[in-house]
Design a protein around this nucleic acid. Structure first.
Lengths: 104, 104
DNA sequence: TGTATATTTAGACAAATATCGAAATAAAAG
DNA sequence: CTTTTATTTCGATATTTGTCTAAATATACA
């Protein structure tokens, strides 16, 4: 319960971080491997990792010198559930074409 | 195809804007009505409206002096679809407990 | 212990963002 | 045409964000 989604949506707002998540979906990777795939510096990536960790979107595991990052899909699902809730609150009847409720 | 989701996720990153979307889900409202529900100034709200419009998350309709805002649920659905794609790319079998990738 | 490799932290800086009050625009009403 | 009401645009400002280089920490290994 009590999912503080602010950090999750903040984390998802950056394209680099979304790309990291997508990459991690295909399998856990070390920080260095991820860094080698992006055109930004390792400290910058580390900064993004911190934001993803703060949002609980990724988990880390030390393996020798390496730190392995892996995806936490549960939080991603919760974020989706919250989006679902926005456009159909507590009900499954989503009316895609939101007709004009003429109330004054 | 070709959904430029950057502005959508940026728009969803702000709690005020998510609250606006949630409010609009319950029915279209004029700018003034929405503004009266939030503790920030009307120019600030107008700024948020612009961001939501740029992301195509809301539509507007002039009605006399008022401007009526309504939700565009389709774009919200597309954002969810993209989240879905992050944690299970092109497949529907979502494994909630992402154990250490025994897939290739 | 000392050196190499992997990753993070510290500090700085430019760009983006959220906010405001004041002024501008648009439509309605007198 | 002037005033009133609704909303946006303008200009300013403080905070947050993404990025960098340099330095620090942590582990492995000779």
């Amino acid at each position: 319960m009590s999912s503080p989604q602010q950090p999750v949506f903040k984390a998802l707002a950056d394209p680099t971080r979304r790309a990291i998540l997508k990459r991690l979906q295909e399998g856990s990777e070390t920080a260095g491997e991820i860094a080698s795939e992006f055109p930004i510096s390792k400290p910058s990536l580390s900064h993004h990792f911190n934001i993803l960790k703060a949002a609980d979107l990724v988990r880390t595991e030390r393996r020798g010198q390496h730190i392995v990052y892996s995806l936490n899909a549960t939080v991603l699902q919760e974020a989706m559930a919250m989006l679902l809730d926005i456009f159909s609150p507590g009900d499954s009847s989503q009316d895609q074409d939101n007709e004009e409720s003429e109330r004054e």
